[in-house]
């Protein structure tokens, strides 16, 4: 299936958000996630099922004012 990851379409076989992060190469990176505009806490990622066309945002610390 295809999901939109940070604005770019990616093919994935991952069934849930935790597996998708591993597959996409984030491993142990400090990131926060939102699925279809809703925050998904780190502890809830294994229970967040993915579907074709889902929008996934993966954010990390960045400079800010």
């Amino acid at each position: 299936m295809k999901i939109l990851v940070n604005g770019a379409w990616r093919d994935t076989d991952a069934g849930d958000l935790a597996a998708a992060l591993q597959e996409l190469g984030y491993g142990d990176a400090v990131v926060a996630t939102a699925l279809n505009g809703e925050f998904v806490a780190a502890g809830s990622r294994p229970r967040a099922r993915l579907n074709d066309g889902d929008r996934l945002e993966i954010l990390a610390p960045m400079q800010g004012g």
Partner: peptide, 15 residues
Amino acid sequence: TVSLRRESSGERAGQ
């Protein structure tokens, strides 16, 4: 102050 932005798995600038 800090912020959050999209993180590329390759660059990992945020880390």
